[in-house]
Amino acid sequence: MSDSEPTSRVPPQRSSSWSSQDRDRERVLLAEFAGLDVSDPRRAVVRDELVTMHVPLVHYLARRFRDRGEPHDDLVQVGTIGLIKAVDRFDPERGVEFSTYATPTVVGEIKRHFRDKGWSVRVPRRLQEMRMAISKATAELSQTLGRAPTVRELATHMGVSEDEVLDGIESAQAYSTLSLDGASDAESEAPALVDSLGTDDEALENVEYRETLRPLLAALPERERQIILLRFFHNKTQSEIAQEVGVSQMHVSRLLVKSLATLRGGMGVDA
């Protein structure tokens, strides 16, 4: 990636979009954050504000990587992880601008995302076909059974061994192809679920570290965020979500794996 990385223009913090008030606020917050003990609940609040404040920087940096086949939202999502790491590691006493310090970390996360994708995009053809056949058979059997089929039922229906079905569903998770993750399927037809969800704040009311979780959730692409809320805070099954959102259950499952890994990465697993 590095060979074609465009040179940097003026990041948002140095452009006119930031007032001197914003800059003062940033300085105050960074100094406060550095002085807070890890166990101080105030830390999450300050961290949240610092992250929110610098999300435009992530958008700006993500735009450098446009036209490379990845949705902007996905890049912002991984870039935000880099931003959070930068907030956590920044030392205001070193006299470096925060945006200068954060930029390589954010860009690093985005590049890592491309590297991961590059690896995962090579799905063996046999597995790709098996995965598509399973997806089709799952849809058919769900109709007749009124629930998702078991591996045994799939194997019988498809005339293959249970092992082959297991290989197929494992590959559906281990590899994720760019085309499937793109906005190609149902992104636009997805109903405005968010209306029926209530606000994130209600959903997160009883969760510790919600101050950290909220910006991470907000940075997820809309559909991923909806799926997380539906599955974990509204206790919908994967099949129900698949129907509501208009994608296959396998796709819901894959998006859940991906989003949880992202959230975990951003929060530190403990949270």
């Binding site: 799952t138 078991t150 045994r152 079905v165 569903i169 994967q238 859940l256």
Partner: peptide, 13 residues
């Protein structure tokens, strides 16, 4: 989970 006859969505869960 396949042994225990879990439906696919539960297996994924």
């Amino acid at each position: 989970c396949a042994q225990a006859d879990f439906p696919l969505d539960r297996l994924d869960d």
